[in-house]
Amino acid sequence: MNQVTLRPVLEEDLAIFEAEFYTPEGVGPYQWFGHRTPDRERRAFAETGLLGDDGGTLTVCSGDEVTGRVEWFKRAWGRPLTSWCWEIAIGLRPSFQGRGIGAEAQRQLAAYLFDHTRAHRIQAFTDSGNRAEQRALEKAGFQREGVIRQAQWRCGRWHDQVLYSLLRPEAGPAEP
């Protein structure tokens, strides 16, 4: 595996994301929620570069190749001013899955968010049947918290989700 790096999204990355993540084959069985337009993402890129105070997107690279993207969103477990955390998500191009890139990208994203924000908690969830992503989150240092029953509507039925988290003290010291 080449070295995994995260970087801001470039305009040319958007075409790769659209080609890879806007079809059932590209996103796979756990992330297909129906057809959607890329216009919203392109407008957000034009306005903010997909980096904002309440979340963002970074491109995942392995060597010089774009392998996918990671995203983060602000979530709250109570009052948003005092009880917010980051929720992360990842999308890897199908040809790069199963190589450890996802675990490393999610580990790097968590480190980045702990280094550059005041977040104490980072969480992620995945379908209860998505064993590969569950292993990737665990390799990235996340701990399984439990099952959220029938929380996600996808492909005509409800699906259980597994919640994972990483707390700042578990992530180790920040880099200087």
Rank of each mutant, 00 (worst) to 15 (best):
A46F: 09
I148P: 00
Q134N: 03
N130T: 11
T82N: 08
L92F: 07
K74S: 14
A89E: 14
A119Y: 07
V60L: 10
E25R: 12
A15E: 15
Q3P: 01
G28V: 07
G141P: 03
C61I: 02
W32N: 06
G68Q: 08
R69E: 03
V66R: 01
G98D: 07
G55R: 01
F114S: 05
R7Y: 12
C155L: 15
P80C: 05
Q106Y: 02
L6D: 01
D115I: 00
V147D: 02
E87L: 03
T126M: 00
P24V: 13
G56I: 01
D64W: 10
Q97A: 10
Q3I: 07
H116C: 00
A15P: 08
R36W: 10
G56W: 02
Y22T: 15
E20Q: 12
D115N: 11
R157G: 14
P173Y: 09
T57N: 03
Q31W: 06
L92G: 04
G172W: 15
W84A: 05
Q134E: 14
G156M: 03
L137S: 02
G100P: 04
N2E: 14
P80W: 11
N2V: 08
I148L: 15
F73D: 10
D127F: 05
S95Y: 05
Q161T: 11
T48L: 15
T59Q: 02
G63M: 02
I90Y: 09
E138A: 11
L58S: 01
E11I: 11
I148A: 15
W86C: 05
T67E: 03
R154N: 04
G91M: 15
W158H: 13
D53M: 00
